[in-house]
Design a protein around this nucleic acid. Sequence first.
RNA 1: CGGGGUGUGGCGCAGUUGGUAGCGCGCUACGUUCGGGACGUAGAGGCCGCAAGUUCGAGUCUUGUCACCCCGACCA
Length: 491
Amino acid sequence: MAKDFTTRAENYSQWYNDIVKKADLAENSAVRGCMVIKPYGYAIWEKMHDALDKMFKETGHTNAYFPLFIPKSFLSREAEHVEGFAKECAVITHYRLKNDPNGGGVVVDPEAKLEEELIVRPTSETIIWSTYKNWIQSYRDLPVLCNQWANVVRWEMRTRLFLRTAEFLWQEGHTAHATEQEAREETAKMLGVYADFAEKYMAMPVVRGVKSPNERFAGAIDTYCIEALMQDGKALQAGTSHFLGQNFAKAFDVQFLNKENKLEYVWATSWGVSTRLIGALIMTHSDDNGLVLPPKLAPIQVVIIPIYKNEEQLKQISEKVEVLTKKLQARGISVKYDDDDSQRSGWKFNEYEVKGVPVRVAIGPRDLENNQAEVARRDTLEKASYALDTLDETIEKLLVEIQANLYNRSLQFRDANIRKADTWDEFVSLLDNEAGFVYAHWDGTTETEEKIKELAKATIRCIPFDNPLEDGKCILTGKPSKQRVLFARAY
RNA sequence: CGGGGUGUGGCGCAGUUGGUAGCGCGCUACGUUCGGGACGUAGAGGCCGCAAGUUCGAGUCUUGUCACCCCGACCA
């Protein structure tokens, strides 16, 4: 598998787009850069949403909702923040249309110009911190642990379904704390939640680490991230958690009285993951036959396909299937029985394979005779027959096994594609010929980082947690370095 | 914003030196089929992205314009 991506990579974009299209996940809309998420794609997002939302609540967070529009002046309150987002903002300048005096259509009514322009949120720190100012006066009001499920808009120059679209769905957590330590703990905790979600639900191994200053979120003191490796050897930032220090508290004047009756600025965090995770899921597991979904995120975990020649046979099969379906559902497994008479079984096999359904059960006359069913697993494409009476138990175990296998397979691939480079030539050669992560020394300066990006098109993905200290020389400048950092070409 | 490419039935495409549009998939009906995207027969469906121009005549040539895709720059 380690080499598979190099052949697929030549047409990786096309491969990716084909999967999205064939699995019926999403399509480009008539609106520039925006995506239509189709029902099946949205069902995957809902699975992600539900699992994450549960994890957020278990860690003490509650959901809230803040406005879509941000007054321009809010955005510019935090200097680095506005600089980071200014270039990709959609701006609302008018609030009304009128009939075109020169023709049939409508035009923007110049009379209806806004006093202050509104920005369509690219992220909600500013609008939320302007609100938190009213919510927080005392240490008793802290912490504030809010999450918002929302859409945001970033006017990207080039878009790609799920991975980068002008509008996307995400969640953004925004928390306020009395102490730096508590805020730092929150930042780490939520990164942990994301890493758990990626590994346990998406079956996608991730590297946890901290971003270099250059890659930091605009307005953050520290940005932590989970980085995943896609099958074409490119890295993908799958989630971020930011320690914002007191930057936003100062920008929006959010202070509280502590127990000593002293006024202090509040400490902040923010963290988010988006529909990009669906892109990550596609690029982590899918194969040339289409999408491959981990059981925990599959909208349909098991599809049952009857094979029959006449009504009588179908009726016999359906009776058996009804019992099986109930037993599976009792185990919390989502099942679809596809007895649609207008499609043939072969067509259905393909259909669900392309859609990544983890387990397919086929029951025909032969199986009825032997009181068994044919079970095919999507991850390995293997088929085997099992006794019908205990099939619910067999499938439950199989789903667990598929989930584990997908994770292990990806982990093996990821680990096989982390390589060390000690010289510049080696570094470039690894990126060109092998792709994947390259673990190399860096002198710690932004200048060098940018130069490397320019020359090798690779960025520092992160400085992994528990990174071993090791004396060495920067691959570009030869200056002393105390540790290796993780480079890659990235999405 | 640079560099490349493509616009022709719902989708994917062909269309020669200009002569009035075709193929595959899909769709509809009927029949035979049904254990890996079935087959036969008969149908429906297109002012060839848009606008000018050249010409007796333009899908084809010229100019303009719009849209989309790919590769960069930018980014979750």
